[in-house]
Design a protein around this nucleic acid. Structure first.
Lengths: 121, 121
DNA sequence: TGACGGCATGTCAAGATTGACATACTCTGG
DNA sequence: CCAGAGTATGTCAATCTTGACATGCCGTCA
């Protein structure tokens, strides 16, 4: 992380630190960060599982390739809203979402989340 | 819903209709709406379970009473971000969140979601 | 080597969300 | 009836988020 970016984040009220060490984060702050990471990981996995490019997913979401890249990077300018809408656009159901959220980061999804729906659209 | 509000929503790109009839909503749109409703219901239930007033929850969230009211009403000006942060502020864990999201609207939470943590703060 | 497809990163104007405030409504107890 | 607590609803300036665009990087294929 470059210093300019760090400054921007801090200006926006984020606490900046390595992902793994939650020192100085309240439990709810770390739960929030963790949630974002779980969702962004799941987006990338599900997209790959469906063999879509970022451009293709962007079309489904009515968004742009660059924003998909940011989503998958859990960029700070991406809201939980957009993360979740990405999963829904990939065809995830509520139960799929729940699995992602309940799981640990690093858990593999993919086939597991693709049992209950045919290819959307 | 009053006509003025309806117009505002439509201007913002929402499809407006009764909650139960999903006519005209794509599956992903209705999943999104449904998710918001599940989360807002859970906020109210969990807050009541903890016997907090809206003012007290607002303090924990560094927000205001009026915004809590809007959260619990699933007001259109409230993001998923804020809904989820509210649950986290109420002490919900990832697994608790997952239960809410996986569940059906109308499911009762409360005690079920309050087994794994002591009163925050 | 060059061209191309896929992904990453920065920027920004347009639009959405937020906390705060004012105000109104609804109970409940006295 | 009144007062107070709790909740609902509208408004708005400040702030954040978004899609779009430009551009760069990395593989791969010919």
């Amino acid at each position: 992380m470059e210093k300019e970016k760090k400054a921007r984040l801090e200006a926006r009220g984020w606490k900046v630190g390595s992902t793994e060490d939650f020192l100085g984060l309240t439990p709810e702050e770390s739960a929030y960060v963790d949630l974002r990471l779980k969702l962004s990981d799941a987006v990338r996995e599900l997209r790959k599982e469906k063999r879509l490019t970022q451009v293709q997913l962007a079309e489904r979401l009515h968004s742009s390739q660059s924003r998909i890249a940011k989503i998958e990077a859990a960029d700070e300018t991406v809201s939980l809203d957009l993360l979740i809408r990405s999963l829904l656009a990939l065809g995830a159901s509520s139960k799929d979402l729940a699995k992602v959220i309940a799981g640990h980061r690093g858990d593999r999804y993919g086939a597991n989340l693709l049992t209950s729906f045919s290819t959307p659209r």
